[in-house]
Design a protein around this nucleic acid. Structure first.
Lengths: 121, 121
DNA sequence: CCGCTGATTAGATATTCATCTAGACAGGAG
DNA sequence: CTCCTGTCTAGATGAATATCTAATCAGCGG
């Protein structure tokens, strides 16, 4: 289910193609902006980073929470924001809840940040 | 004002490296989160996209403003947020002001979104 | 200098957000 | 069932934000 499209144009055989040739339209911006907004908090950025780089591709809330100076409910709130933005998903497994990244969403954001190669040159 | 961080390790000279192997530390998150936050508004996202994909790698405020339904000062405010986040820079040329993207900053953000390729493997 | 156009700054306001405490819900152990 | 631990929800509050109008600054042409 989490098999996802690769937005890269590999026809030339090179990676890092200039993906952002055309400007986003209003609808795309309305879709993508909430995802970027979700990353606009240091705690959420670290949470996503921890989840994404975790062994096995997922992380337990019980391992995430103690790494921050804020209360448990605050971490829960931030995880919910990331989840509602479509950047992560989670499920309870017995006592603990585990979260995984959603690669397609992250790739969609990365694509927006691809600067046309000829920008400066 | 405009500080010039480069959070990327480009020492290998190769592109598309798996940059997000390790989780961000608190300091990196504090640096990067304001940049993501700046992109967390549809108008700013479109502004950056327009500037980035503009002919010649820069765009005039006079061409950007009419494409939105908000007032001139509001566009000016959003451009300032993008500028203070280090994502764009601008200068006045006679009557008009032109903005350009800052590719290093955008690449730093894209690197955070690189999902470790071996996540599932 | 005076007026005109483009862009930014200043101040006001209504909304959104991050955080907390208190309480509820889920699941396992005795 | 009862207790305990882990996680989430609810409600409150102070701070940050997006937007506007009015005013200011920068440059150009008479």
């Amino acid at each position: 289910m989490s098999k996802q499209l690769v937005v890269l144009d590999t026809s030339t055989g090179a990676c890092c193609e200039p993906l952002a040739e055309a400007a986003l339209d209003a609808g795309q911006a309305e879709t993508l902006a909430p995802m970027f907004k979700a990353l606009g908090d240091p705690i959420r950025l670290r949470l996503l980073s921890m989840i994404t780089s975790a062994q096995g591709g997922e992380a337990c809330v019980c391992d995430l929470t103690p790494q921050f100076d804020v209360s448990g409910p605050t971490i829960s709130h931030h995880l919910r924001v990331l989840r509602e933005a479509g950047l992560i998903e989670g499920d309870r497994r017995g006592t603990w809840v585990w979260y995984r990244p959603m690669p397609a969403a992250m790739q969609a954001l990365a694509a927006v940040l691809a600067v046309p190669a000829a920008a400066g040159t």
